[in-house]
């Protein structure tokens, strides 16, 4: 086992992890943060997207052992003090989900995008979200929600 010290959604955790545990299984099975979903397990679908030091990553392709000293943000850490973040609000308002399985990953990716560019074009939204797959919505409502969240953030 390897000892790692990580910050998840602002909380410090000291963990003993096996070398072959992914960050995804560590978050879900050991920290019980089950908002991050397991989809394809090979980096295609983006359901497991989290932020590592502010950048998005597929947590299914990250080893927990790599993470010592890193800051991780999951969907559970996106709202602050009981208040949804604008991306979450916009997803609800625009109905940008159906089954909801892909939604945590989309919200993480969209939040990362808006932190980097508060006024992205539709093309940039679609490109930056290409690593998140949704089999229900056809994407239009998701793109619309990200545009609305961007507008909320700018006002």
């Amino acid at each position: 086992m390897k000892h790692i010290s990580i910050t998840v959604n602002g909380d410090q955790h000291e963990l003993l992890v096996e070398a072959n545990w992914t960050l995804l299984e560590t978050l879900r099975d050991h920290l019980r943060l089950t908002g991050t979903k397991e989809g394809c397990s090979n980096g295609n679908c983006g359901a497991c997207t989290v932020m590592v030091n502010g950048r998005t990553a597929n947590s299914c392709l990250v080893l927990a052992a790599e993470m010592d000293g890193n800051e991780i943000t999951t969907i559970e850490g996106i709202a602050s003090q009981g208040k949804l973040n604008p991306v979450q609000e916009a997803f609800i308002k625009d109905g940008a989900l159906q089954c909801g399985f892909c939604t945590p990953g989309f919200i993480i990716s969209a939040t990362a995008l808006l932190q980097r560019n508060p006024d992205p074009s539709e093309e940039e939204i679609r490109t930056r979200l290409a690593g998140n797959l949704c089999r229900c919505t056809g994407y239009d409502k998701i793109v619309m929600a990200v545009e609305d969240a961007a507008a909320m953030l700018r006002t």
Binding site: G46, V52, V62, A112, T127, R128
Partner: peptide, 9 residues
Amino acid sequence: VGSWQIQNR
């Protein structure tokens, strides 16, 4: 190469 998530790592 892959997605933004992939390029970040």
